[in-house]
Write a protein that binds this DNA or RNA. Structure first.
Length: 682
RNA sequence: GGCGAGGUAGCUCAGCUGGUUAGAGCGCAUGAUUCAUAAUCAUGAGGCCGGCGGUUCAAGUCCGCCUCUCGCUACCA
């Protein structure tokens, strides 16, 4: 493949609804930053683009809950996220935002072009409308009684109590969360992106063409979606927070956030180009540019299927050359979770470990979930620091600088005749540089960072084998050569660690008293000339003691405890009902006569129950905790006058009463001693 | 249940289109060494490459079945 003239690198836009954590960094930001720093060291023309995704319903809901405008929410998190990135050394060329005017214009124009080309399908449907607030209601803006479990606070898209996904029209007694009134059904028009059509026309073929150069997890995910058959996807929705739909007569509609967010890459590029006297079209609309999206696996469908479909439908745009999505990073064996506070927050890390950005960058990089989910532990963080950064890299630099000062007052000595071992070592440097390039260019960053450390290992080995501290007593000339070469290795290190450890590289350059050097110099055997004076060194890395690590682990244990406490807290009682309401329920004692798993389901068991009144079939979602053969003959409590319901094609007549704890474990609610079938429970 | 990704040394992972005694880092053991933050260097121990069957002269690598983990999805009143 021909070399691209310029690179357009994007990292997933973080949602401006919470702070950044470890998982974000590992997924989309650190790999991108490493890649970009590498390209820039090679003097490539690169635009590294990111920004906050500031639209969408969760932000409006949070705003409403906190009694402020959505803008206040996004301003807060945008600033927080931007600061965290910048302090952590994730060096975007621009960190833009989708609430900006430029973005609104860009997204609006993008839609308009597609609209005028007739790319969209129009559909008119009935949707709930709040007459008082004069607006259509997004799914999350409607609550009502869940048709399945009777929970009264179910949302329009999902019942939080029973987990069922719903559509607003299924809710009983729908209520607007805006005004508290009952909404009415009103016709509304929306535009859809015909992904099914694109799939047939070119999308599937295009994905297939990337089978060999995309990562298997990425390609596999795409195929999974394509096999399921893509469906037209609504581009617009009725909401007041977002980019307004630029069609006359359709005020009060905005672009769906999935549509407007990726356009954020384009608007951010425009903003950057303007500030830097560049032409944004060179990056987005020129075939000799290469577009790469760095994302986490949750974003694969948007960046590999939907956004390319948008770009192609719009016309003129290039499509991504690669989408190196990472899997997920876990923390101490558990999934990262914002709501459960199971995370390492970047702003907290920066506070707890000042000046140690590179230690975390290194640990994350060495553990990047490139092929599969991976685990971050604080113990590993400490080990990586103490046994690798301190012992191998920091130590080599320190040895070299101390020796140079001890014998030569900090002046780089002349090199004499090279021995075979010298030559071999210098040749090895070149090999390391080449391997490193190969790894980075194929997005294998954990391998890359290991190779970079190999250069420091090479340095330590060189010193151990040449023993300058011994040779100085017998052959002073020889030691000059040894130290000269050690200095060259140190200088090469200052270059090749820059993508991974930019803060350390900077420190090292100060020790060596040099400027930032071009990548290709790393393969040279004389980066620093003899006679150059280096500075005195302090330490590149400090040891991290057990206490610091224990403190972090304790922090996590505390949030685990807090979560458990929250889980154990019983839910508040439901609204009072009358005795009449209660007696409407006919609960009986019954005996399980037969039990068998419902095929092709995980949870369902089909039961035959003797209720005393009759024998009937009940389907129950208990297979996770109970085996069919264990429960035959068991007495249970059964609600017998529940409306029959078809589940997986089987008519279920009634409901077995179960006690469910916070973890979801189910146990039977049964009579204390055996009693007769049909006995009434009241 | 369907789809996708994984299951390789104590731990974290490489092993590309099948080819000589299966690799790395950390950890562990032994030895060497002192310029260096008790850091470094060398050597070594440690693997029925999740299980079973098949294709092949040859399989960690290809095919089938099973099993476990993760994700998406269906199901749960």
């Amino acid at each position: 493949m021909k070399k691209p003239k310029r690179y357009l690198i994007t990292s997933a836009l973080p949602y401006a609804n919470g702070p950044l954590h470890l998982g974000h960094i590992a997924g989309a930001y650190l790999p991108a930053d490493i890649y970009v720093r590498y390209l820039k060291l090679k003097d490539k023309d690169v635009a590294f683009i990111c920004g906050s995704d500031e639209h969408g319903v969760p932000i409006t809901l949070r705003a409403r809950k906190e009694g402020v405008s959505p803008q206040v929410i996004v301003d807060k998190y945008h600033k927080m996220i931007k600061t965290a990135f910048s302090e952590f050394g994730i060096d975007f060329d621009i960190y833009h935002r989708t609430s900006s005017k430029l973005h609104h214009e860009t997204a609006s124009d993008f839609f308009k072009t597609m609209y005028e080309k007739g790319e969209f399908i129009e559909k008119e449907e009935e949707q709930y409308y709040d007459e008082k607030e004069k607006q259509f209601l997004a799914d999350r803006y409607i609550t009502g009684t869940c048709p399945k479990c009777g929970y009264e606070e179910a949302y329009g898209d999902q019942c939080e109590k029973c987990g069922t996904s719903l559509s607003p029209k299924e809710l009983k007694n729908p209520t607007s969360r805006l005004s508290g009134n009952s909404p009415i059904l009103k016709k509304t028009k929306h535009w859809y992106l015909p992904l099914d059509k694109y799939q047939q026309e070119w999308l599937e073929e295009w994905i297939d063409s990337h089978k060999s150069n995309w990562k298997s997890n990425v390609y596999g995910q795409c195929k999974s979606w394509l096999n399921g058959g893509l469906q037209p996807r609504a581009v617009t929705r009725d909401l007041d927070w977002g980019v307004p739909v630029p069609v006359e007569g359709y005020e009060g509609k905005v672009l769906y956030v999935w549509f407007d967010a990726p356009i954020g890459y384009i608007s951010a590029t425009k903003a950057w180009a303007k500030e830097n006297n560049k032409n944004w079209k060179d990056y987005w609309q020129s075939e000799d540019s290469q577009l790469i999206h760095f994302i986490g696996k949750d974003n694969i469908v948007f960046h590999c299927l939907i956004f390319p479909a948008m770009l192609k439908a719009h016309g003129n745009y290039i499509l991504p050359d690669n989408v190196p999505a990472n899997e997920f990073l876990n923390l101490e064996g558990d999934k990262l979770s914002t709501s459960r506070n199971w995370a390492v927050w970047i702003h907290e890390y920066l506070h707890d470990f000042p000046g140690k950005q590179d230690v975390l960058r290194y640990t994350i990089c060495a553990n990047l979930p490139e092929q599969k989910d991976n685990d971050f532990t604080w113990k590993d963080f400490q080990n990586r620091n103490n046994n690798e950064l301190v012992a191998i890299l920091g130590n080599f630099i320190n040895r070299t600088i101390v020796l140079t000062h001890k014998h030569y007052g900090g002046e780089v000595p002349e090199r004499g005749t090279l021995t075979d071992f010298d030559k071999k070592t210098l040749a090895e440097m070149t090999v390391i540089k080449k391997n490193l390039e190969k790894s980075i260019e194929s997005f294998r960053f954990r391998e890359a960072v290991k190779i970079a450390m190999d250069l420091a290992r090479l340095g330590n080995k060189y010193l151990a084998d040449t023993e300058p501290w011994k040779v100085i007593k017998t052959d002073e000339e020889r030691v000059k050569t040894i130290m000269n070469i050690s200095i060259q290795i140190s200088a090469a290190l200052s270059i090749i660690i820059e993508p991974f450890l930019p803060f350390t590289a900077d420190k090292l350059r100060k020790f060596l008293n040099i400027e930032k050097l071009n990548w290709d110099l790393a393969g040279s055997d004389s980066i620093i000339e003899a006679g150059h004076t280096i500075n005195k060194a302090n330490l590149l890395f400090d040891k991290i003691e057990d206490e610091a690590i224990e403190k972090q682990i304790q922090k996590l244990m505390d949030s685990k405890k807090a979560n458990q406490a929250e889980q154990q807290q019983a839910e508040p009682a439901k609204e009072n009902i009358t005795f009449d309401d209660f007696v409407k329920m006919d609960i009986r004692v019954g005996t399980i006569l037969e039990a068998e798993r419902v095929p092709k389901t995980d949870k369902l068991i089909k039961l035959k129950i003797d209720t005393g009144i009759d024998q009937r079939t009940v389907v129950s979602g208990i297979a996770v905790d109970h085996k069919p053969e264990d429960i035959i003959g068991k007495q249970v409590s059964i609600l017998v006058n529940l409306e029959p319901r078809k589940i997986r094609g089987i008519v279920s007549q009634g409901m077995i009463l179960m006690a469910e704890d916070a973890s979801g474990k189910l146990v039977f609610a049964v009579p204390e001693v055996k009693t007769s079938n049909g006995a009434s429970i009241k």
